[in-house]
């Protein structure tokens, strides 16, 4: 029974999605829109599971005294601080005790984590007590201090300057830098293709060189046979192979979804 329900659901919702494509009527459209919204909403619940997994893995690293455990502390602090920013905002001109309070809260949570990861029970108890004390201090500060507030019901947190600066000065630069590393990696990949001396990688490399030369800035705009050749390469064989791949992928997708719908392919859902 427990095993059959999921597969029945897969079949029912899947077949509905197939049918709704042929039915333009608005009833079918409404249901279609609902289903897509539902997936997004379930996704957020899943994200909670994800954050839990992330927390657990980090804490376990600290507990096992994995050689990189201090970095897990950084991850967890980043996580807590950013969540805190997302749900708080300044009410007036000054920050008041916002940052000290945040520091105390983080320290308190850190103490709890330590209590959890500590092996000796007496030390663990002490840490828990200190943690509790810090949290109490934090609660008192947040009640007394009127220059900032928690916002669980309006989106003030997203407009919190601290939230935005963390986004702009931590996430954006790292993201852009990671992306820019591609420039190095593409060079090392080209070097790798150059070193591998078999027929297929030679074909790949020659095609890549022709296209790169076509747009090469040193010799000025390439024209004549060279340019025609590169353009032909892009427009003709490239097009043909892409078409073959797309048709193949299309069949693969159709076959896989069909196998999933009919319950022929079940390994995506564990047993038991």
């Amino acid at each position: 029974m427990r095993r059959q329900i999921p597969f029945a659901l897969v079949f029912i919702f899947g077949t509905f999605m197939v049918f709704q494509y042929f039915v333009p009527h608005e009833t079918s459209e409404w249901i279609y829109e609902y289903l897509l919204d539902w997936i997004a909403i379930i996704g957020i619940f899943a994200l909670a599971l994800g954050i839990w997994s992330f927390y657990k893995v980090s804490v376990d690293k600290i507990k096992d005294k994995n050689e990189d455990w201090p970095y897990s502390v950084i991850s967890l602090s980043g996580l807590f601080v950013m969540i805190f920013f997302g749900f708080t905002a300044r009410t007036g001109e000054s920050w008041g005790f916002y940052f000290p309070a945040l520091l105390i809260l983080t320290a308190g949570l850190g103490m709890f984590t330590m209590a959890y990861t500590e092996t000796s029970s007496s030390k663990s108890k002490t840490s828990a007590m200190i943690g509790l004390g810090l949290i109490v201090v934090f609660v008192i500060i947040s009640i007394m201090d009127n220059s900032w507030n928690f916002y669980f019901y309006t989106q003030e947190g997203l407009k919190n300057i601290a939230f935005i600066s963390f986004f702009e000065h931590i996430m954006i630069p790292i993201q852009a830098t990671m992306f820019s590393l591609l420039a190095f990696f593409i060079s090392s990949a080209a070097y790798r293709a150059f070193r591998a001396r078999n027929l297929l990688s030679s074909i790949l490399l020659i095609a890549a060189l022709i296209v790169m030369l076509r747009f090469n800035p040193y010799l000025g705009p390439v024209s004549g046979l060279m340019a025609d050749g590169a353009d032909w390469l892009i427009n003709v064989p490239n097009l043909a192979a892409k078409r073959a791949i797309i048709i193949g992928i299309g069949l693969g997708i159709v076959a896989t979804s069909l196998k999933v719908l009919l319950g022929i392919e079940r390994s995506y859902m564990g047993k038991g």
């Binding site: 994200l47 599971l49 859902m269 564990g270």
Partner: peptide, 18 residues
Amino acid sequence: DPIVMTVAQDIVKSSFMD
């Protein structure tokens, strides 16, 4: 993706069971 993680956990667990 957290949903992918959930499914993957199920898969790996049941493969170990098998």
